[in-house]
Amino acid sequence: MSAYRFLVNGSPAQVDVPGMRRLLDVLREELGLTGTKEGCGEGECGACSVLLDGQVVDACLVPVCQVEGRIVRTVEGLSLAARERGDLDTLQEAFLDHGAAQCGICTPGMLMAARAYLDAGGGPDDGAIREAIAGNLCRCTGYTKIVDAIAAVATPLD
């Protein structure tokens, strides 16, 4: 057991757990951030996607020792500023408007992959969006409305 320190959604966190504990388990069980979901535990479905230093990663494949001193962002931190107003951020809003969330279990991971894409300057191109979320399986939507929602946010306003 060691103490690991890192930033989660802008707040410092410290956990005393084995270094090989998955970031996914630390988030869900030590920090109570259950918005990050487990779908397969082997990096295939993307339901546990979070941002690690701004890059999208599968939290099931990250041992917590590798998170020491780094910055983690989860779905709970996607709209911190907006949520204080009881509101959604633009990406969440677009998902809601377009019907991009159905059962919702892939949604947090999908949002994080989309966030990483948008933060990296991704545009509304259909193929580029699909590539950006290809690591996030959705069984409900057929992806059409998800792609539409991301494209709507990525489209620069005139």
Binding site: G35, T74, E76, L78, S79, R83, F95, L96, G104, P108
Partner: peptide
């Protein structure tokens, strides 16, 4: 979607 905001914020 009624439960949409809850699903979208985790």
């Amino acid at each position: 979607r009624r439960e949409g905001p809850a699903k979208l914020t985790g």
